[in-house]
Design a protein around this nucleic acid. Structure first.
Lengths: 329, 329
DNA sequence: TTGTATGCGTTATCAG
DNA sequence: CTGATAACGCATACAA
């Protein structure tokens, strides 16, 4: 294994000089810079990230904290895009990434959780799918021990940023479009899971729309469950003009119910998962670019590493209809 | 950050003694062992994996090498299960995992690839979705620089094992079942991508079945593409009795084609992805437990770390039909 | 601008 | 059975 020492020898300079060149320190002459780079080239040197992490306390190691959906693999594509988006950007920025699932840190105290991440030399954490129930995680954020980026939340402090689409506006937009296209009055809104930020925001958006357009809004909790959405639609869908769902999966469940009842009502969803292209009926939905969101989160983490304050970053969304023809290949 | 030094002080022993206890070295008295463990408990000590990796050359860091499917997110669930299966098991075994995509190492020479993994202190690599085209990867395997486990392949050497289901048998089984249930003679077999081990194996299984059952076998390459399978079925499906596909996605494409042509032919797939539950028609398919495969791969890697020889591990498969009722929740 | 020396938290070797 | 102590590869304060 060729190390920085070998490079130093090859270039005829000191180890620290090599390190300085590699890390783009200011006070290095062009000539030595070139000497070093040439040596690096010749020896095909790649810095040992592990040693670097151990040496400098700001390790450049980041953790992706993901909540696995035990419920259905149909939305695995969301996590997958989060992962690929984050890892790709991290590689570009030369950051090391480890993936952690909630299940691994479940039940830990703040102390334990802090130690767990510290023991891995983690300096930044990106959190996906956090709910209000994750108390310890909230404490971790408040402690500002690590630089953190929370996806879909509204928590900002000196070391914490937030990245996500404007869920309220997105919900408003997609429902508004669906209603406009079909002229509806009575709306069945199937919301997501209680205690989730996105659920609250989307509901807020929906309520605003109901206000603006003088709609009769009937809200039920679908818990992001396809089955539940189906049951709710069977029960309450008949005397409504439209079913607005806080997720695609629930929209699919609702559509199934309507088909079963042999009645037509427009339905719209949220997320833009590929499954929407397979269910036959086209529905409006909100398309989030999950990879871009994760990618942005990594960038934001870098900003925090640089000492900047946490902030709220809003990502764009699009309204789409997924057709089989568009997604097949 | 509490370190091994603190534990040593707390326990009143030397640093090296603590290390020995933590790593289950043989020659440590029960009494000191207890003293150390108590101190660990009191201080809530978690060993720093990064330092450990740097110090001991067999780092316990493993890389997951994944090929992203640019084609469709419908099968992201497969990669996701690979990832979760591997990471969960790795955590259990106290191994550090990093995720790497082919795109990151594309175009690298053997030298570069070796250095890349070495620079990350990787000692084991699990390879998913390798094809015959990945020449450099084959060289890496042959070099035996790292302990490696290849999923779905037939390469074994002193440092390399293979894990996967018996694709030939699985293909045989699922096709046999489908044919038996429907009494068919003329079979359209839509194979996967050329130069892929699984494609070859599955085709072998299919040919054996054709032999055994005296079937007229008509083979075409579908490249694992839903669209292509659809086109092939439109073109060749009419005068066949059954369409056997080397993947679920192709099976779905084939079924679409048949529906378009308004004719019925039994269709079977391979993989057991959740989408199969959504397409209306029930089809036989092979269910692989991807998480278990990845989990097994980690275990196998440990075996290799322990100095054992590479070997071929065959995982079980199941024949299933995915119904909407079974997958919804 | 460059080099020297020390430390990061472990593991491993070798005395004791 | 236990304890110094030297690596591991790199970053960095400080000296030159």
């Amino acid at each position: 294994m060729v190390s920085i020492k070998d490079v130093a020898k090859e270039a005829g300079v000191a180890i620290s000089t090599v390190s300085k060149v590699l890390n783009h320190y200011p006070n290095v002459s062009e000539s030595t810079k070139k000497k070093v780079m040439d040596a690096v080239e010749r020896l095909n040197f790649v810095p040992n990230q592990v040693a670097a992490a151990l040496s400098s306390k700001r390790s450049g190691r980041i953790a992706l904290l993901l909540k696995l959906n035990m419920k259905t693999k149909a939305i695995d594509e969301i996590d997958m895009q989060y992962i690929t988006g984050a890892i790709s950007k991290a590689r570009e920025k030369n950051l090391d990434v480890i993936t952690v699932f909630y299940s691994m840190i479940e039940g830990m105290s703040l102390e334990e959780m802090t130690r767990y991440f510290a023991s891995q030399n983690i300096s930044g954490i990106i959190v996906f799918g956090m709910t209000n129930e994750d108390k310890v995680l909230h404490k971790l954020i408040a402690s500002e021990t690590f630089k953190m980026v929370i996806i879909d939340a509204d928590i900002v402090n000196g070391s914490t940023s937030t990245v996500g689409v404007d869920h309220a506006k997105a919900q408003y937009d997609v429902a508004e479009k669906t209603i406009r296209e079909n002229t509806c009055k009575r709306v069945l809104y199937i919301a997501g899971m209680k205690n989730s930020y996105v659920t609250e925001q989307r509901l807020l958006g929906m309520k605003k729309l109901a206000d603006d357009k003088k709609l009769k809004l009937f809200v039920r909790n679908g818990d992001f469950s396809e089955l539940k959405a189906r049951e709710l639609t069977l029960k309450y869908g008949k005397n409504k003009d439209v079913v607005v769902c806080a997720s695609d999966l629930m929209a699919i469940g609702a559509m199934k119910a309507l088909t079963d009842m042999d009645i037509f009502r427009p339905v719209c969803g949220f997320d833009g998962i590929i499954l929407m292209g397979y269910v036959g009926k086209q529905m409006n939905t909100v398309k989030q670019d999950f990879a871009a969101i994760a990618s942005k989160a990594v960038k934001e983490l870098e900003r925090l590493f640089a000492g900047e304050q946490g902030r709220k970053v809003v990502m764009p969304h699009k309204l789409v209809r997924l057709k089989y023809e568009d997604i097949i290949c």
